[in-house]
Amino acid sequence: MTILDEREGSRETAVNPKLERRARRRDAWRGFFHAAPAFLYLTLFFTLPLIIVFVFSFASRGRTGRPLLEAWNIDSWTRLFEPLVRTIAVRSFWLAVLNTALCLLVGYPFAYWIATRRKQATRNILLVAVLIPFWSNFLVRTYAWRMLLDSDGYITQFGEMTGLWGRLLFTVPAVFLGLLYGYLPFMVLPLYAAIERLDWSLVEAGRDLYASGAAAFRRITLPLSRPGIIAGSILVFIPSLGAYVTPDILGGAKTTLLGNYIVTQFGAARNWPFGSSISGAILIVMLAVTVFYFRSGGRTL
């Protein structure tokens, strides 16, 4: 067999291995071009800064607070084990756990209700309603909450009128009100997706096999909506762990959480290396949580 000229590969057969390989490579490149804008953007403004943060976490702090890269050490990482950091981390952790639990408790029945509406149109309207808060900025919405919870706000006035509560602003309940408000949609949406694709004949089979309504829910509906529960919990837990705006504006920044502690390091304390190491540590924890999610059988978020 003669060696075929590449351009005239059709001399003996229309396609030969060489041409097929080239076609495949062209295809791969075409795919990359589609992804290129996002790829470049993320590399420049996400991956690169992340690497910078990571690198700075090994720098030492100069006398004026300037990070010195040439005198690198792991002091900032060892500082993570100081009691103060641990206290703040534990506090943030519990705040995130509690908020996740609250969102799940409030969000599950709601998602279930939406997902079980007979008409697709009704379900769509309700889902859009869940997303309406995103039409305005998170910060603006949090300030709106501040007005509601302040001394002359409606919620405080109602509480004082009924004698149930006083001024809520700058209290722990205010922080949770704000967090629940902010993150509830992130819980409802994946739960909705999971419940909506549930095979209801399984629930019917359960009822047919002597399960009461409650038993069928506990034994069938709940375990089968687990992917949604896990996805929603991660989507709420991760941002709650680093929550900064809500505790700051509604909680009055009275208690230090990881979020504002990091801000302090980069700002007032002028300790970039330490701020970087805390940020890095949180990232690693979140990564671990996410990996756990995918390992435990979760699917698309």
């Binding site: 095979d199 004949s201 399984l202 047919d208 096999l209």
Partner: peptide, 27 residues
């Protein structure tokens, strides 16, 4: 249905995917 003395074999079987054969049968 849980208070009726009848049982159903469903069209798509409706086997519980999160239980094994034994657990399905024993449900």
């Amino acid at each position: 249905p849980n208070k009726r003395p009848v049982n159903t074999v469903f069209q798509s079987y409706a086997l519980f995917p999160h239980m094994n054969v034994e657990q399905n049968v024993g449900f």
